[in-house]
Design a protein around this nucleic acid. Structure first.
Lengths: 188, 188
DNA sequence: GTGATTATTTATCAATTGTTAAAGGATGCC
DNA sequence: GGCATCCTTTAACAATTGATAAATAATCAC
């Protein structure tokens, strides 16, 4: 689970004790393509770190499957609207590409916050970064049209297209699959 | 500045020492309509609490004025993408309705984090709430059409329409002013 | 491999939103 | 009060996106 510690150290230096405490509440899971890591309706009690593979947060709107976000290698994925409120989430987490996921027990993590302010600070910084990324994405949805958003995504995650079915990407961009297909053909 | 302390206590109980430390880095400002509280280009070093009136975060895209968000009474407003990274912001803050604003010095606040973990926790919780609100807004932009978004806004902030020019609301919803005007007339 | 299932593209038409310009209202300054 | 400025609406047309259906391509299970 070195990748996780490296990820953490990117935010903040952690001594051995902190590292041990964090590893003690973390568990490596191997998951196959299409597996549901967290079903819709559960309250989020786990923060996931993607060591390998790709996962997505999804939900249903009028029966249609919507992808809220993707997480590839070296990214955290969690349904924060449930994690921070401890209310049931209307969203689930699914594996899109066979994955190695480190599951961090949130209940135990929050207990560590009381004991180790440095760990609370670490996760404050991690989620502040997530917050900033969400604000940037909001801006993209607010003021770029579908083609611009598609090109931006291509630029930010060039390998995503090779690894993720287009149907997931369409809803992520806030458009239909047919519309994405049209945009793709107009670009060539 | 009781409104600020009440706001804080909504997240977490604070003893007298914490309260005093927080008040010591906070300053009440009176601002007129249309005043620029923070100009575009500056790095965010202040977190604002709106005690009275309304403020907005704005920026320019292709020379067009865009409203990213509004903050009315009892809300925090800050350009988090600059606050958390300490890089210059491409966004500014403007007063839309004559306001009483409490300016919290972020540099001093971050210093308090080191001294008082409880204060760091307080602001962790405040920004976690902001994060959740941003995720919800992302969802709204991703999967509701302009009319639905307008009606949702009407529901969430019924008095906003009476207090804020429509031109600001249009860009907040991610549409043009003409389009908003059309939607409004089709609803009546 | 073969057939079944799933994913993607293409086509057509409808609905929504953008663009530009002009007209009507409201507001503020002197 | 009157003029200038700013805000909002309306209109006409263009561009974008959605909805539905069908065709093609890719993938998976056996």
């Amino acid at each position: 689970m070195n990748a996780l510690l490296t990820y953490f150290q990117h935010f903040q230096v952690l001594n051995k004790e902190y590292q041990d405490q964090l590893l003690a509440i973390s568990k490596l899971q191997h998951l196959k393509k299409n597996e549901i890591l967290q079903p819709i309706g559960h309250t989020c009690k786990t923060i996931y770190f993607v060591q390998k593979g790709i996962a997505r947060i999804f939900y249903y709107k009028d029966g249609i499957d919507i992808t809220e976000c993707f997480a590839a290698e070296n990214h955290i994925i969690a349904r924060v609207e449930s994690l921070f409120t401890q209310r049931p989430s209307q969203k689930g987490i699914q594996i899109i590409e066979a994955a190695e996921i480190i599951a961090i027990n949130a209940t135990q993590l929050f207990a560590l916050y009381d004991q180790y302010p440095a760990i609370e600070r670490l996760f404050r910084k991690i989620f502040e970064q997530g917050y900033v990324e969400t604000v940037n994405r909001l801006e993209s949805l607010q003021f770029y049209n579908a083609e611009e958003r598609y090109l931006n995504l291509l630029h930010e995650m060039p390998d995503l297209l090779q690894r993720v079915p287009l149907k997931y990407i369409a809803s992520y961009l806030g458009i239909t699959q047919v519309s994405l297909s049209r945009i793709r053909s107009s670009i060539k």
